[in-house]
């Protein structure tokens, strides 16, 4: 089994991370459009997208079957399917893979739910290390405000209601998001995440992203030239 940091593929993997409401998906789709228009072969991969695991996850959420451990493991299962189907093959083929949420989401959420930091990292050791990971950092009150206005109702696990931190969903959600943000902040140095200030203008954030992404694409071209000579 090849582990994190040891994968060597010709493709490039860019991931976006951040709390709900940080605007990361908007940024990723803008990046996607741009790369497409530049003529790259781009592959999109989302969190919770494995068709094999989806039914189990949906049922477990509905019937509230999860403990922090099984929540973590089932999401890891989903992620493994995603890695084996949608991430490694396009990377091998030399494509650009864009991932909306990656292992850092699991690290943040699962540790916020009380899972052991070391254990969760061990579980995801098979993951491919991204070429660059962008962490869209929004202050807690901004993120909560954005979510509250975008969604009529918070879901049980989304609000962290399984943890019994608070009786009220909104209160629970705030506590949960606070813990998640704290974990993300820890990971910036640990995994070398690129922090993007998510309170900036959308275009400003996008240009920061494109700047970094294009540097990695140039590198790739250089490699090709070297190989050709």
């Amino acid at each position: 089994m090849i582990s994190y940091g040891h994968h060597r593929y010709p493709g490039r993997l860019f991931v976006v991370e951040g709390t709900d409401g940080s605007g990361k998906s908007t940024q990723l789709s803008l990046l996607y459009q741009w790369l497409k228009s530049e003529g790259y072969s781009v592959f999109f991969s989302e969190w919770n997208s494995s068709p094999l695991v989806k039914d189990t996850t949906r049922r477990a959420k509905k019937r509230r079957l999860f403990t922090p451990t099984t929540f973590s493991l089932l999401h890891a299962t989903d992620f493994a399917d995603r890695t084996e189907r949608n991430i490694i093959p396009p990377l091998k083929a030399g494509a650009i893979v864009l991932a909306d949420r990656y292992i850092y989401t699991a690290f943040a959420r699962d540790v916020a739910r009380g899972c052991d930091r070391g254990w969760v990292r061990e579980v995801y050791k098979f993951a491919v290390k991204p070429t660059a990971a962008f962490f869209f950092r929004a202050p807690l009150d901004v993120a909560i405000e954005r979510i509250a206005s975008a969604r009529p109702e918070l879901k049980f696990y989304e609000a962290g209601m399984d943890m019994e931190w608070a009786d009220d969903e909104e209160e629970s959600f705030k506590i949960f998001q606070g813990k998640i943000l704290e974990e993300y902040d820890h990971m910036v140095a640990e995994f070398g995440l690129t922090v993007v200030d998510a309170t900036q203008q959308i275009r400003a954030q996008q240009s920061q992203m494109r700047d970094i992404v294009s540097r990695h694409l140039k590198e790739k071209l250089k490699e090709k030239v070297v190989l050709a000579t």
């Binding site: 494995s50 890891a76 084996e84």
Partner: peptide, 13 residues
């Protein structure tokens, strides 16, 4: 239809 890593983790779940 399960990949190997996926299978191991499904069993762990």
């Amino acid at each position: 239809t399960l990949g190997r890593l996926t299978t191991q983790l499904y069993y762990a779940t």
